[in-house]
Design a protein around this nucleic acid. Structure first.
Lengths: 343, 343
DNA sequence: CTGTTAGCGCATTCAG
DNA sequence: CTGAATGCGCTAACAG
């Protein structure tokens, strides 16, 4: 069944193409009766206007691309939700591009940009390398806004959360509980968000007149095995150097830490306190429930969408290069408690 | 900066439009030197061919739409991974459409289909209502394949997993451990996959000459509170009626059950065994590690993509309406053990 | 309110 | 190997 064109349905309803076009675009300049008739004919013949032709004629695909590293990170769903909530009330449609490679998705970026499908882009990127590629490819000038990429070097508008204060709050909370040796299970230290959280924790310790103990910062990546072995190493330190609290760079890492500790017979929070970051759904449901830092992911998505929409609707090159920092919040649950060991 | 057209770069490189078009389409009929020169000019001026124009001229957007209920279900990422793995080696691009409403995303389907953006569709739908809407809208004839929707009523090609055998295996495993009173924490019973799993469990019990005990099938939805209260009710039954094993309809529900039991001081698997379904990543990491049924989600995605691609590349209306059932597998971990109570 | 006339940017004949 | 001509399906002035 060959697809019908606007011409067919014009003929079918005894009108001209342009009248049909007008009803397609909800023009008020068309007689309601005529409109209804045309609509009926379209439905009857199952007519769908060609997306490509419309886009070409209008000079706008009406598609907003969202580029994310992968779907396995829980909070992607939350960011996406925020974006979708804003976009679904507009004439735009959001399409999500992912990669099968979480580390390097420049390939996806390549394809999305060079296909030119999208009118604008919302991208979640933590890696400077990916970002560089994005900026390079995007010199053409497709409106783009970054999410969760604060601190990275680029002139693109960005919205993120206050990772520094998150780290600071964790530090103060732990210090307030009497902890003095606080270890960090860090993510990749070249990621800005990791650096920010670390800086926050350090500043909190400085406030208390403390220096981060030597060997208490363990760098890891996203491999569970590595996180486990780093945790083991930390707990094997002599009692006077062993940390009484562990700050994991994100909740999933914290879960792994929790599992490792449980298997080693270490009690949480009696023997050691554990803190995560992000407050993903599961954080409230593991046992013990995880103390963590909440990031307003849905809000981040919403704000990013807002920025992109205004950029899209304004006369181009308005040079809106804003940077929005949303607050983070400490959520205290059961995985942290007073330091009992030799204080 | 106005976007350049093929005409501009033709002029810029002193050639005709068609020659440029040929290099765009990798035609071998163009002098390599000329090709390189043209490519250089394109790069220099940051030229990107218009997606809409290309799609219109070729009569194909080269976009495959994937419609999913939401991103919060862990296994969506796995299905998507499988699809992406297949599609990324083709000329097609995959775009993911989600809804902010997991229950009813017919709106998303409406928009995707009536926009006509996609050349083909891969849709994950568990709800017959959503499916009906899909079929109705899709009478136009956009190639579509269903994922994880086996058992639903439609003529569309579909790939899913063997939920019946999954239920059967769970039943036999539990029966083999001596359990006689096996309760089910069911999902929405109008969902085919729920029905299949239940049928499997029932058949296993029939094999052992048993009937599902009265009141041992608790229907729930996706609300945590409901799952918790159903679990409580089951455990409050008198000792001679209380189940010694709980079969949750998916892993997340099983986690909730586990939490509820832990809070009530019920030991797993000593006091009661718990089984999930899906084998999402976390299943291996909760404590106790969850016995569950593995579904080959990535494979499901792969197969669906394969089917769609052949449908897309074949001369239309080949009426490929296949139905692929992939095997499920029981993964025994620590949450199930021998029945000890009054046997 | 409706019909006419041009393009939108590219692919694809068909001659040279 | 290259250039000129034509059309993909729709929108957008402009006339009537």
């Amino acid at each position: 069944m060959a697809n019908l064109t606007i011409r067919d349905i014009a003929r079918l309803s005894g009108l001209s193409k342009s009248t049909v076009s007008l009803v397609l675009n909800n023009s008020p300049k068309v007689d309601p009766k005529t409109r209804r008739r045309v609509l009926a004919v379209m439905r009857e013949h199952n007519y769908v206007p060609s997306f490509a032709a419309t886009a070409l004629a209008k000079g706008n695909t009406g598609l907003i691309g969202m580029i994310v590293p992968g779907l396995t990170w829980r909070f992607m769903a939350n960011i996406n939700y925020g974006v979708a909530k804003v976009i679904e009330d507009t004439k735009y449609e959001i399409v999500l591009f992912t990669s099968t490679n979480e580390r390097d998705y420049s390939g996806a970026i390549d394809r999305v940009i060079s296909s030119g499908v999208c009118a604008g882009l919302i991208v979640v990127a933590h890696d400077q390398q990916v970002l560089d590629r994005l900026v390079e490819l995007n010199r053409g000038g497709m409106p783009t806004v970054l999410v969760d990429t604060l601190g990275a070097i680029s002139d693109l508008p960005a919205v993120g959360a206050d990772n520094y204060t998150g780290g600071l709050l964790v530090g103060r909370h732990l210090l307030g509980l009497g902890h003095r040796r606080i270890a960090s299970i860090l993510g990749p230290t070249d990621h800005p968000y990791v650096q920010e959280r670390r800086r926050g924790l350090r500043d909190a310790m400085h406030e208390a007149g403390l220096e981060p103990g030597p060997g208490l910062e363990a760098e890891t990546d996203f491999e569970e095995a590595l996180i486990r072995s780093r945790t083991r190493e930390l707990m094997r330190l002599s009692p006077d150097r062993r940390p009484t609290a562990l700050f994991a760079y994100h909740d999933s890492a914290a879960f792994t830490v929790l599992n490792e500790l449980a298997e080693a017979g270490v009690r949480v929070p009696e023997d050691v306190s554990v803190v995560g970051f992000n407050d993903i759904d599961a954080a409230a449901h593991v046992r013990p429930a995880l103390t963590t830092v909440q990031q307003p992911f849905a809000d981040m998505g919403r704000r990013a969408a807002d920025i992109l929409l205004t950029a899209l609707d304004s006369t181009e090159s308005d040079e809106i290069s804003q940077r929005i920092v949303l607050p983070t919040k400490l959520i205290v649950r059961d995985s942290t408690g007073p330091a009992t060991a030799d204080r």
